[in-house]
Simulated scan of single mutants.
Amino acid sequence: MLGEPSVQRRRFLRGSAGAVLAAGFGGTLLSACGGSLDADQPETPRLASVSNFRDVGGAGSGYLTVDGKQMRRGVFYRANALTLSGKDAATLDKLGVVSVYDLRTPAEIARTADVLPAGATSATLNVLGTNDFVAPPFDTAADAVAFMQAQARAYVTGAPQRAAYGALFGALADGTGAQLFHSTAGKDRAGWVAALLLSIANVPLDVIMQDYLLSNVYLAPSIAAQTATLRAQEGAAIAMARAPLLDVDENYLQAGFNEVQASYGTMASYLTRGLGLSTATVDALRNRLVH
């Protein structure tokens, strides 16, 4: 049975999430969750040109679930925009990705086109339902945090968001071979998808939160570079006010989970009523996710 945010959200281990970020990447997180790093399957490669690329199933032998199962690795990947260098493209080609799902707006795609893995098909699913994503100006960091929380709630309640996410999960359930989904930074729109997949797999919610926060580690050089550019071009005050747009925070994902509870009562109801998924589709996703 799917974990319910109303019950389990108090179990989020705020301290342990910070410890994971301080210690390093997903291997540390997996060790904390009881997984083995001695699996036969090699570690997911790091891609310098697509820094937030990673396996939804985790590292090592995969995340453990609350019902004693384990996430499959090499099935679903998440990423930021596929600005692949030649070297990284060759590395990604070896993973056998057959389908890429681009969650960006048309203007984002026009600015930064994907470099697709060899032989992969591509589909666009405009989660926001707008031509572009442009954040409004903010006077304070608190305003930016509120905006990010509103975005997370809209993933749950917005009509374009629900339609795009429903279509994505249906495609992931029906697909064969490795599949990849991504947004621009791979942390918000793609981060919500990853959190839902881990929820469907029955991964503990504290682990889901820690996995979500790992975007801050993977994107750290990019966040630092964007912050420096903002500070140089707009000044320290504006850079500080816009800082919450560049990373992820526990409160963002929590806002989405809280909205699931407020609008649908349970995660299962959100998946079926909100996203229009059949129980058979949810079961097919779970079967792809765990073993």
Rank of each mutant, 00 (worst) to 15 (best):
S85L: 01
A135G: 04
A110E: 12
N131D: 15
A110S: 10
R104C: 10
R104H: 13
G74M: 01
Y101F: 14
L95D: 09
A107G: 14
V50P: 03
A123N: 15
P117Q: 08
V75I: 03
T112Y: 09
A39G: 08
P45K: 12
N131M: 14
A17T: 15
A123L: 14
S51V: 11
V97H: 04
A39W: 02
F12N: 09
R73K: 13
G3T: 05
V20Y: 09
P106N: 09
V75T: 04
V127N: 05
G74P: 06
G60C: 07
P5F: 13
G68L: 01
R104A: 10
G34S: 05
F25L: 14
F133T: 04
A107H: 09
S16W: 01
N131W: 13
S49V: 01
R11P: 00
T44F: 11
N126G: 11
E108L: 12
F76I: 08
Y63D: 04
P106L: 04
L125V: 07
F138P: 15
D67A: 09
T44Q: 10
I109G: 08
T28N: 11
G62W: 02
K94W: 08
V134M: 12
E108W: 14
R111Q: 08
L13Q: 14
V7N: 12
T105M: 04
D88I: 07
G119W: 06
G57N: 00
L47W: 03
L82K: 03
R46T: 01
G15V: 13
A123S: 15
F53K: 00
F53H: 02
T124A: 15
V20L: 10
P106K: 01
T91P: 08
S122H: 15
L2F: 14
G26S: 07
L29G: 00
A22D: 15
G18I: 15
D40K: 05
D40W: 08
V20D: 06
L13D: 15
L37P: 10
L103F: 09
D88Q: 13
G58P: 02
R46K: 06
V50F: 06
R46C: 05
A79N: 11
A90C: 08
T121L: 11
N52F: 05
G119T: 06
A135M: 09
A48D: 12
L95W: 05
D93M: 06
G15E: 15
K87E: 10
T121E: 04
D102F: 06
T65Y: 00
N131I: 13
R72W: 03
A110T: 05
S36L: 06
G34C: 03
V7E: 12
S6I: 11
K69I: 04
V98E: 12
A79P: 05
V20N: 07
T121F: 04
Q70D: 03
S85N: 02
I109H: 11
G27D: 07
V50E: 03
T44A: 11
R14V: 15
P137T: 09
T65E: 02
A135C: 02
A90L: 07
A19D: 12
G24N: 04
T91S: 14
I109W: 03
L92A: 04
L116V: 06
V134G: 08
G96I: 08
